[in-house]
Amino acid sequence: MPERQALIIGASRGLGLVLATELVQRGWQVIATTRQNADGLQAIAETSPGHLKIESLEMTSTEELTALRERLTGHQLDLLFVNAAIDRGNLPIDKVPTDMFTEVMITNALSPLRALEALRGLVTPGGTVAVMSSEQGSISLNTEDGYELYKASKAALNQLMRSYATRHANDGHTKLLIDPGHNQTQLGGPNAPLTPKESIPAVVDVLEAQAGAPGLQFLDRHANPVPW
């Protein structure tokens, strides 16, 4: 069988870096994007020659997305995974400056969908299009104070992904929103209950098990549905 091929958008650190590592270890051919620091990805490339290709991308730039799409002409992806998000602190929404609101919404909601639209043509029939979401984006589970802007951006991401899935309902792609749990990353903080090395293998299990499933699903790392 030919090697499965994945493109991970946002893989320089944290969940994305561990995701790239896990896929390579499972025999996938991985293309991983980074904005600046690629030291972690370079280490994977050196220990797994020929299994990891590093591409530069600023996801919020439509020009860079177009250029990446052109560079990847001819690739056939079994998985397109967008993993990118920022957090600008725990402010009540009335204290959030307009430029901060715009930055978070562009990065966490608008840009992932722009990336999917720019790159979906590389995904094979029966392939998977996935985005890293969060339980924080669940409206029905929003019963605790805090992180209002981040929660809103993930809820917007989920809604836009629902629109994407409706618009492309007949393209033959599996579509997933993934909640990896609360992890010890730069975004999740040092006191989170999980580490990426604990959660990401389970996430990849879900990605592999759901390949070929129809429609859009919002799942946690155990393949349980997350309420919208």
Score class of each variant (00 low, 15 high):
L57I: 05
A45M: 05
A84S: 14
Y150T: 06
M100Y: 03
T102N: 14
A223F: 10
G146E: 09
E208C: 12
L52I: 03
V104K: 02
P49I: 02
G137T: 04
S140Y: 05
I8F: 05
L160H: 10
L57H: 03
G189V: 06
S140P: 11
E198Y: 13
Q184T: 08
E198W: 13
L149M: 11
L219I: 09
G172H: 02
G172Y: 02
T174M: 01
H51S: 13
L157E: 00
R221W: 10
I9A: 02
T185S: 04
Q186V: 12
S134L: 07
S134W: 07
E148Q: 15
A169K: 06
R71Q: 12
V24E: 07
A211T: 13
L19N: 04
F101R: 13
P214R: 13
P227A: 10
I9P: 03
N170I: 04
M100T: 14
L52F: 08
E55A: 00
V131Q: 03
L41K: 00
L216K: 07
E208S: 10
V204C: 08
P97D: 14
V204A: 08
Q42R: 08
L17W: 01
A32Q: 05
D179C: 11
A211M: 11
V204D: 04
L15G: 01
G137I: 04
L65I: 06
P112K: 06
K95E: 15
Q184R: 12
L15K: 01
P180M: 06
T98G: 11
E46S: 12
L23W: 03
I9F: 01
G127M: 11
A213L: 04
E55K: 00
E103A: 12
L79I: 04
M105C: 14
A202L: 15
L110T: 13
Y164K: 08
E63S: 15
K95Q: 15
D39S: 10
G16Q: 00
G181R: 01
R167W: 05
L176S: 04
E22D: 11
A192F: 06
M161C: 14
L41H: 01
T195P: 05
M100H: 05
E63M: 15
G126Q: 04
I178F: 05
G14T: 02
D78M: 07
V24S: 07
M161F: 12
G50W: 09
D78S: 12
A45S: 12
S140L: 14
H173S: 07
Q136H: 13
Q184F: 08
V131P: 02
